[in-house]
Design a protein around this nucleic acid. Structure first.
Lengths: 351, 351
DNA sequence: CTGAAAGCGCTAACAA
DNA sequence: TTGTTAGCGCTTTCAG
């Protein structure tokens, strides 16, 4: 009357107990083999390995980590937007480092939303990531205090945290801006237009501060035209440049705070067949093919991700050393194609 | 003589037991509160929540999942290279969908290495991801059979798997190529140059097949010049175009298999101040600013990631429906700036 | 060298 | 409504 114990459903994953049964050894021996403990008789080990292969055994790492204490071999990376090449480059560089440490990276985008950032931090902490790398947004990261005290290394990247000290890896925005403006000044420009987006962000604030410092040093601060655009659509920047050029005392050079503004401005200059000097922040993949000569501030984006990840592993190893702050240097590059003065009205394809 | 039991070290994370003790309730009540089970007296729940806040409690999700069975709320995404905007766009779109499902995405790059792909799959399976989304590389994904049978949904993206059937989300490469070639033919071109990289990849194979079909349909297959380049450096493509144009019977139009080849070819055409018709695959962010008119085959890259992720959740919900194969359509777009014939020798900045 | 028992932090049964 | 007990799959004592 009693049926034999039904076989476990085909879908169930084999556990170490199953492997032990199949190999005719104890659970512990299987565990030892799985962890490459040397003190197992080769013959037994062989039998266990065979059983593992036959059953398609895959250790449940969550269970192993649970018992073992910590070390999930997972790091959380919170960036602003993975669709943005700047951040995806950072993510790729960081992933390359974590990969070498047999650690996976969980990359999530906060989308410039501080609440979302907090949610993500919480979620990642509940997954017990070994460390966090964060591009902070908003003006308060003090909520991380508790987590850091609990021993989770946190490294900030691209922007420093607010309301809290922490390890950082930043770009030398201020110096980059200064160098670029110095270059324009050396070329003889005096009336310089400056187009930025919201100065609320640390990044843009630093860049503008660099511009201002250099203009002040040259004593030509009053001849500058500062404009802030409130949308990252290229047309907005195009309009801004247009207005500058149509003003009574137009600038002979324009500094753009980032590459979106730069390309927007460029479209306007191309359309006007202008020869105004164009320069700005951020190098990018096809910048050398822009249809207008530009000088841009470049930097090693990959270094940001790489340094942050390396610093992270350093912290995982030995905690509570002094705060570390890396600064990635910038350099100037000439990009774009100088096609000279042209006759036909240029056509800019829909973009 | 007996010291009092030492307090747990400050670093230890509080568990539900700690919370229960602090709130003066049982472990299970804490668990219920943590899981929003409604049947807890509000007053007790309040006490528990307070204790949680005071202790800074964060549930250990690994432990919860372990006990609960499956569902780690994690999906694995294996792409070829996160640093490539095509793949990071896919990752971003997929992440957006998983985020809505309260699921984190672990994105890893195989770097076109089939062994690495297998390692990553194994690692992700040991983490018990709920599903896998894979851009396959190499010519054998049959090793995934066992995993799929065990119930892990696997969706393939951009390329179909080999040695195995599976859900796929692909681009309509063949038709895109056909349409573009048809356009060139309609414009009157007969001698068409075709530059591709290694035809070993599914993607390029499909594109070239589309080109060939259309050329054959027009009866001008013999007038075509096919060239395969073996490096993805732009100069290689530039050289290839150069050789085509210097040949006895140069093409009047050139079809490039991807955007790296397209930009490489473009550099050569700009340098020669050529007016050869240029066209190719892949639209990209700043394509509308290329200093040369081009027509490219575009497609909704985000749709790839989005559809794959959505399909994945569908599969997690209800397994073993029939195989699904999405095909993302393509379209033609005109890009680049037509600056007409120009006088000064163009300067292409270092790139 | 091997195994039995305990327990990581949590949830699912089953009482009370 | 609340608590008790068992146990997820694994590793860690500690005996054999």
């Amino acid at each position: 009357m009693t049926d034999p114990a039904p076989e476990p459903p085909a879908t169930r994953r084999p556990t170490m107990v199953d492997v032990a049964k199949a190999a005719g050894v104890s659970l512990k021996t299987v565990s030892r083999v799985a962890n490459n403990v040397a003190t197992v008789r080769p013959e037994l080990a062989e039998r266990v390995l065979r059983a593992m292969r036959d059953l398609g055994f895959q250790r449940n790492n969550a269970a192993a980590n649970l018992r073992r204490g910590q070390e999930t071999s997972t790091i959380g990376l919170i960036i602003l937007d993975l669709a943005n090449p700047f951040y995806s480059t950072i993510a790729a560089a960081a992933a390359e480092v974590t990969q070498r440490h047999n650690t996976q990276l969980i990359t999530a985008s906060s989308g410039w939303n501080p609440d979302r950032e907090r949610e993500l931090v919480l979620d990642l902490c509940e997954r017990r990531v070994d460390a966090l790398i964060i591009v902070p947004t908003g003006d308060d990261q003090s909520y991380l205090r508790a987590e850091i005290d609990r021993g989770t290394p946190v490294v900030f990247i691209d922007r420093p945290p607010a309301g809290l000290d922490g390890d950082t890896v930043l770009i030398d925005n201020r110096n980059g801006a200064r160098e670029l403006v110095r270059r324009l000044i050396n070329e003889g420009h005096r009336g310089i237009g400056v187009i930025t987006d919201s100065l609320n962000s640390y990044t843009m604030g630093e860049r503008v501060a660099g511009v201002s410092e250099e203009l002040a040093a040259a004593g030509i601060a009053e001849q500058a035209h500062f404009t802030e655009v409130y949308s990252d659509k290229p047309e907005t920047a195009a309009d801004a440049v247009g207005r500058m050029l149509d003003a009574p005392d137009p600038p002979s050079a324009v500094f753009c705070g980032n590459n979106r503004i730069l390309t927007g401005a460029l479209e306007e200059l191309v359309a006007r067949r202008s020869r105004v000097r164009l320069a700005g922040f951020d190098d990018f993949e096809f910048a050398h093919l822009l249809p207008y000569p530009v000088t841009v501030v470049g930097y090693d984006t990959r270094a940001l991700g790489r340094l942050a990840a390396e610093l992270t592993f350093q912290r995982i190893r030995t905690s509570t050393p002094p705060l570390t702050n890396y600064v990635v240097p910038t350099y100037l590059v000439d990009r774009g194609v100088d096609l000279g003065t042209r006759q036909p009205a240029p056509r800019v394809a829909q973009g």
